[in-house]
Amino acid sequence: MKKTLASDNYSGTTPEIIEAIAKANGAHQGSYGADESTDTAVAMFKKMFREDIDVYFTMNGTGANVTALSSVCPSYGAVICSSVAHINVDECGAPEKFGGFKLLTVEKENGKLTPEDIAPFMVNLGEQHWSQPKVISITQATEYGTVYTCAEIKAIADYAHENGLLLHVDGARISNAAVSLGVSFKEMLLDTGVDFVSFGGTKNGLMFGEAVIFFNTAISENYKYVRKQGMQLLSKMRFISAQFEALFGTDLWERNAKHANKMAQKLASGLSKVAGVKITQEVKANGVFAIMPKEIIPALQEQSPFYVWDEQTHEVRLMCSFDTAEEEINAFLVKLDSLLLELA
C-alpha cells in the first residue's frame, strides 16, 4: 500500500512500540491501570515534569480532550479556542454534547490565539444570561502546523489566570512542537503555566493512546470519574502505558518527531521553488499548507493522497510522518512539476 501525505494518522506504528505491546502481552497483570507498565509510564512523566502531577491514560485524542475539558468546565461554562481547533471542527460536537458547555471561537489565519483575541469574551463575566468562560484551549502544534513559542504560551497562561480561567493544551502533535522549538516538554508546558494538557502519542508513532496530565492538581479531583463515565478507561491499560514507556524509555519520541519535521521542511523547500504554488503557513512542525492550481490536485492525489484544506482557495494540507521517506517527497515534487508543465 502506498504511503501518503494525508495525515500522520495514516502512518503505521513504530516497530519499537509494537515490541512494547508484545512484551506487555506476556503475563497477567492488574487491570484499569494497576500494572507495572502504567506505574513506570506515570513515573516517567513525573520525572519529565515534577512529582506533583496527575497522569491519566486515554484511548484516543478526542476522548482525552473531551474528558479533560468536561472535568473542569460546567455546562453553563465556555471554552475559548481557535475556529480551526480540533475540538471545534473535528470532534463531531463531542465536547459540547458530552460536557454540555459552549465553545467560543476566534478566527485566526495562523491558528494561534493571543490574549488580545481572548479579551472580548471577558466583558460579561458574572452575567447570568451568558455562558461563562472557564477554559482557554490552544493546540500545540496548531492545526495549521504553526507553533506557539514558550513566551506566547506563558502570555496566554498569565492572562487566563489573571481572569480566573484555566489553560488547556491540545497536544496531539506536542512532540513535533517541542522538537521545532528545541525545548523540553517541561519548559514548554509546566514552566509556562499550562494547567492541563492532552498529551498526544498516536500521531508520533503509537498504535493508540494519549495521556491527560494535570499540572494544576487542584482541578483533577473529578477526572477519574469523568474518564470512566466517558468510556476512556481501558481495562487492559498496560497496552497504552507500555507504549509511552517505550516512547520515553529512549529518544524514540524525539527521533520520530524530528524526522517528520525534517520531511516537512524538505517538502516545503521543494514547493517554494515551484512557480504556481504558494505556501500559506510558516512550516514549523510536520505539516505544509499550500495553494496550487485546482486542475492538478486530483492527479497529484493519485501519486500521494492528501486532503484539500480549503475548497474555495484550493489550499491543501500535506502531512509528514515518522516513516515518510525522502524518496516519496522527491517523487511527489517530480509529479507536481510534470503536472504543472502539462497545464502550461
Rank of each mutant, 00 (worst) to 15 (best):
C150H: 04
F244N: 09
F101V: 01
S321D: 10
D170K: 00
Y307E: 12
S75F: 10
N176L: 01
P298I: 13
A41I: 06
K108A: 11
F306D: 03
I240R: 04
T324A: 12
S338W: 03
S70N: 14
K278A: 10
D54L: 07
R317H: 12
F322R: 01
D54M: 06
A34V: 10
E127W: 08
L233R: 04
N286P: 05
D90Q: 12
Q301F: 14
M319I: 14
S241G: 13
L234F: 14
G61T: 08
L341E: 12
V135S: 02
Y76E: 12
P298F: 15
I118A: 13
A299G: 09
E327F: 06
F101L: 03
V147F: 00
E311V: 11
G93S: 11
D8H: 06
A172Q: 03
G26F: 10
N25A: 13
L300Q: 06
I156K: 00
S180H: 01
G145R: 08
D323M: 11
P115C: 08
D39W: 03
R50K: 15
A34K: 13
F98I: 02
A64F: 01
K3P: 03
S75W: 09
D195T: 07
S180V: 02
M1T: 10
V334L: 14
P15N: 10
T13L: 03
M237S: 04
P15G: 12
G205P: 07
A141C: 14
I80R: 00
F196K: 00
E221R: 01
M1N: 12
R227G: 01
G249Y: 06
T62P: 01
L340P: 05
I174Y: 00
K2I: 13
E210M: 07
L189Q: 09
G201P: 10
F322L: 05
L318F: 05
M188Y: 06
S269W: 11
E295M: 14
G276H: 05
G230L: 03
Q29L: 09
A157R: 01
N261Q: 07
I136A: 02
S235R: 15
L247T: 01
C92N: 11
L339S: 07
F322I: 01
A160P: 10
T146M: 06
D170Y: 01
G12P: 11
E51R: 11
L113V: 07
